[in-house]
Nucleic acid binder design. Structure first.
Length: 122
DNA sequence: CGGCTGACGACCT
DNA sequence: GAGGTCGCCAGCC
């Protein structure tokens, strides 16, 4: 059975380090913006660690105010499953996004431009 | 200290 | 478009 946050609760607590940095970065996402796990990893200088960004969010306990639902997989895909995926879709729609199946149609125009990851890099 | 676990991404049939 | 493979490595027990 896949891990279900609503049944089992968070498996890990956020601590200092990588997870904490992900927490802080996601917290700066403005309302209506979208980003991806890979973009977050790159913004943290950890390109290639997209998975860990996901793990960090999975370890995020509820009630922290971190807008985790604004983080989607590459191409605007919702990578969650089951009830968690439905909740993310619901929250995204509440911010004006168009969600069709497991895809966010408004991703291309609402993708957040992290400083340093766009053109004009090193 | 060693092993296990994972909200991904790019690439290939 | 749908499915599988491989690489990536920080936390936790």
């Amino acid at each position: 059975m896949p891990y279900d946050r609503e049944r089992h609760g968070p498996r890990r607590l956020v601590g200092p380090g990588f997870h904490g940095r992900v927490h802080g970065l996601v917290h700066t996402l403005p309302v209506g913006a979208l980003t991806t796990y890979g973009d977050l990893a790159a913004a943290l200088g950890a390109k290639g660690l997209a998975r860990h960004v996901g793990f960090a969010l999975a370890a995020l306990p509820p009630g922290t105010g971190v807008p985790w639902w604004r983080v989607v997989a590459a191409g605007g895909r919702i990578s969650l499953t089951g009830a968690a995926a439905r909740e993310q879709g619901r929250r995204l729609r509440a911010e004006g996004h168009v969600v069709r199946g497991d895809r966010v149609a408004t991703f291309a125009t609402c993708r957040y431009p992290w400083p340093g990851t766009g053109p004009g890099g090193p």
